[in-house]
Design a binder for these strands. Structure first.
Lengths: 211, 211
DNA sequence: TTGCCAAGAGAACAGATGTTCGCTATTCTA
DNA sequence: TAGAATAGCGAACATCTGTTCTCTTGGCAA
């Protein structure tokens, strides 16, 4: 019994809502969260998840269902939440490859309002003006895009083999990556070069361990 | 605001039900579980718990309430290892009193090399020169003393009702507390005044949550 | 006693919610 | 091309559920 793409989305939403709020979402809240408008359609999905063993339902009660262990496994939520710390990035490997993991920080990503996050060790003083130091751990929420002015973790193809923190500024035909340090100059990628910039995620926190 | 005997029973039932089932009980389920028969009476108790800050309620939604941290503390259910965050310190109370706790950070103190730690919310820019910002969470390892030059959390008797971060400098006959900001002046306590300074612990880390 | 307060019973109401039903659109397959 | 599978819309219904009200009971202090 395989899950439809939509059913996975629904399952993920329920799991996310449950961990965030502490109780399951109502059918209509799921509609709102997933951008549809018909409780009927949503109910069909929930029912499908039930017959497939991802949800236990107590008939007759409102907003009273449980996700089974199978569901939590599917969504990939671990019992003891943590944040992986990536150190130096080896050239040629996917950035977030297992080989690059340096440590598993025993911190719940929810502390930073994220469901999935990772950490990078900051190197150098390029973020000095926003009080981020050499050696700090930057907590990054995974996302493909970000808004202007936000601090993001980026990879630049061909230029560096490491992920770096930069302030994102999109111009009409260019992407600018600004360090938060007056002594350094921004990098500008215009035209085709824009494709060389890959956003890994958005900065949602900083952790510093002082000796 | 003290809790009635009955209200404690109700609170315990809700906490128990929540951990067992994964969602909160309805008013009538609480009635059944506690051996009464009137939803009205039970609702009064729930409301009392809400005004006392043990329950957060989302009006208009059914079976949708959350137990606050205070409630979990009252019931005495422990979660994974964590660090308590203390906010404003109320005058006259022991600094690390339960009443001052603002949040329980789901972080293992071992991450900062401590067995027992607590967190304080940094107020103001007195630590600007060491890249600590207003709003940052300072992680403090409990200890009575510290070495020269280290950053410590201190209470000064009579002067302030809040714990502050300062750089410690012991002189022959005085204790100096230096802010890490050139614009501020150090506080000097000499002679008998030295006894007014109480060291709560040593700074072992910083956590920043960016919105 | 009198008054106050916590607690409960029972009824009643309004709204949220699960659930069902019929119809349509799109996509993929036999 | 016909049919199945998936997904959605919108309406409608029964009931679960929070909430309010009134009345009653028992304990306790002034």
């Amino acid at each position: 019994m395989k899950l439809t793409e939509k059913q996975k989305k629904v399952l993920e939403f329920i799991a996310d809502f449950q961990t965030r709020e502490g109780f399951p979402p109502s059918v209509r809240e799921m509609c709102q969260g997933l951008g549809t408008s018909s409780p009927g359609s949503m109910h069909k999905h929930v029912q499908a998840l039930e017959t497939r063993g991802y949800i236990e339902n107590l008939p007759g009660k409102k907003r009273a269902w449980k996700l089974t262990q199978r569901a939590w496994d599917q969504v990939g939520i671990q019992t003891s939440p943590s944040i992986p710390l990536y150190g130096r990035i080896a050239a040629g490997l996917p950035i977030l490859a297992q080989q690059n993991k340096e440590e598993e920080l025993p911190i719940d990503p929810a502390l930073f309002g994220s469901r999935e996050a990772f950490a990078l060790k900051v190197q150098g003083d390029s973020m000095k003006d926003v009080q981020i130091r050499d050696g700090d751990l930057a907590i990054i929420r995974k996302q493909q895009d970000a808004e202007n002015g936000q601090i993001v973790a980026v990879m630049v193809e061909g230029l560096e083999t490491e992920a770096t923190l930069k302030i994102l500024r999109r111009k009409r035909n260019a992407i600018e990556l600004h360090p938060a340090n007056e002594e350094f100059k921004p990098q500008v990628f215009s035209g085709k070069d824009r494709a060389r910039v890959t956003i890994l995620g958005k900065l949602v926190g900083v952790i510093r361990r002082t000796p």
